[in-house]
């Protein structure tokens, strides 16, 4: 099973977390068009490879965290708090991991 290294609690099984969707999308502002709102709620990319997503550590510290996960191999590339720059960690060429 997937293990997530919660930045507050340490490594925990995925059963302690709740999946919260795509971590790259931004909520539109009040003056955005209906189309923008529609896309926000319904339209998602489905990447093969690294994906930034949100998880909540519901059985632990109750914090929402950012996770970079490879959708093909389930490799957890990086985990951080909401304020961390996860994108940089995906792009890091020195990161380990397995080629798909």
């Amino acid at each position: 099973m997937i293990r997530l290294d919660c930045p507050h609690c340490g490594p925990r099984d995925q059963t302690e977390f709740n999946y919260g969707g795509d971590g790259r999308i931004e909520r539109p502002g009040d003056d955005a068009s209906l189309t923008a709102w529609n896309d926000f709620v319904y339209t998602r990319d489905n990447p093969r490879g690294p994906h930034v997503e949100l998880w909540q550590h519901t059985a632990g510290c109750r914090q929402w965290i950012k996770v970079a996960r490879d959708t093909l191999t389930h490799e957890i590339i990086a985990v951080g708090t909401m304020g961390d720059d996860i994108e940089a960690k995906i792009a890091d060429p020195d990161r380990g991991g397995v080629e798909a």
């Binding site: 709740n18 909540q56 109750r62």
Partner: peptide, 13 residues
């Protein structure tokens, strides 16, 4: 509860 925490931590920190 999870939703409210999402609002408080992610949407409106």
């Amino acid at each position: 509860m999870g939703l409210l925490e999402y609002y408080a931590q992610v949407l409106w920190p």
